[in-house]
Design a protein around this nucleic acid. Structure first.
Ligand SMILES: [Mn+2]
Ligand SMILES: [Mn+2]
Ligand SMILES: [Zn+2]
Ligand SMILES: [Zn+2]
Lengths: 144, 144
DNA sequence: GAAGGAATTGGAATGATTCCAAGTCCACTC
DNA sequence: GAGTGGACTTGGAATCATTCCAATTCCTTC
């Protein structure tokens, strides 16, 4: 059960790939789920939502699709401690804040012009390839 | 098999507690393992090293001790993605850098005077309770 | 030195994720 | 427009770090 794009292949209006990723029906459903409600769902959450759109989809496929989307950098995998991974389609550089009152995860962006070197005492010459910053705390409103 | 401190209880020179944590033989062994080689070992690593000092210690106890040390803030639990947690006895505020060439994890401290608010566009009034920052990349020396 | 509560222990259970082998599907070729 | 090959999907089993549990062992206190 694999179907890359539902358009005539001679069309060049809609890509059958996205960032080098072949867009199968299942991958489109999974990606669509993430784009439609950007609440940082777990794989299980995505699975339940995807099933509404494609009842035949399997959990294994959801994991496969999420993995493919992450590898191709269309989606970020977000980890808070060792709880189930969450998935985020926001491609802007950003970090994650979890409201301890509601459990909700919010995107937070860096201020303009901030550089890592200004922040951290990194050893001379290190090349930072990946950065993950997670925050927990309370939002003003959730503060009763 | 639980033994808080090996000193007469009337002595007040060495605490039988540390940060409110009862120091049993096992907890001292586990904490000692972390202090002696600060290479951010996993629970499994700690277990193997602890067994050299106390062959009877169990993995469950190592997990229990690490948990207790973390709750009492004598040790930080460090997570890189979903790999096994690592443990760090460095109480200074710091973040973690993993050298992708060697796998080694290094402590990195913030520059003096850096404030989160200077860095991030946090919504007005949020109270940040926890911050975890992990980096991956290459050290200059490991660069060939 | 008995009692009670906390800590330790071995082993079973958990649960997110990964693995696997079988079945599908599709893009391409002839 | 059938045939092929390779990628993708799927259900179920396996993995494995971590947690749970019930029994036992240890202090600490009375
Ligand atoms: Mn964390
Ligand atoms: Mn990470
Ligand atoms: Zn996000
Ligand atoms: Zn550290």
């Amino acid at each position: 059960m694999q179907q890359p794009i539902d358009l005539p292949s001679h069309s060049d209006e809609i890509p059958s790939e996205l960032g080098g990723l072949r867009l199968t029906k299942q991958r489109k459903v999974v990606y669509g789920v993430l784009l439609d409600l950007r609440d940082h769902p777990t794989a299980q959450d995505v699975f339940l939502r995807a099933k509404e759109r494609m009842p035949s989809i399997s959990l294994a496929t959801v994991y496969n699709c999420l993995e493919a989307l992450v590898v191709h950098k269309l989606v970020k995998q977000v980890n808070f401690d060792r709880s189930p991974s969450r998935y985020c389609p926001n491609l802007e550089e950003h970090v994650h804040f979890q409201d301890e009152a509601t459990g909700e995860i919010h995107d937070v962006i860096f201020k303009k012009g901030v550089k890592l070197e200004d922040l951290l005492d990194l050893p001379q010459g290190v090349e930072v390839r990946e950065l993950e910053l997670t925050l927990k705390g309370l939002m003003p409103s959730s503060n009763q």
